[in-house]
């Protein structure tokens, strides 16, 4: 995702460890929820996402396991 883009979460792939999948859902990253990428810093720093009223930083290593539909 690029900064300013919004997406809808579709599902998690089967590779992400179960505790992390659960933790992301506890944070609000539920399937069907809208996620907005607020910052995409250069040099590979983790991107900053907004879900509900909370802001999280997710390493691409984690984000790559979340399937999304762009243009939410």
């Amino acid at each position: 995702m690029k900064a300013g883009e919004a997406c809808e979460i579709l599902e998690y792939d089967g590779v992400l460890a179960e505790p992390y999948k659960v933790r992301l859902m506890e944070f609000g990253f539920h399937p069907g929820e809208t996620v907005i990428c607020l910052q995409a810093p250069s040099f590979g720093a983790p991107k900053v996402y907004r879900v509900s009223n909370t802001v999280f930083s997710l390493d691409d290593e984690v984000a790559s396991h979340v399937r999304v539909k762009s243009g939410a």
Binding site: Y20, F27, F56, S57, L58, V62
Partner: peptide, 10 residues
């Protein structure tokens, strides 16, 4: 160890 990825609340 099983390494865990990075998630941080801002």
């Amino acid at each position: 160890y099983t390494d865990l990825p990075f998630v941080l609340e801002l």
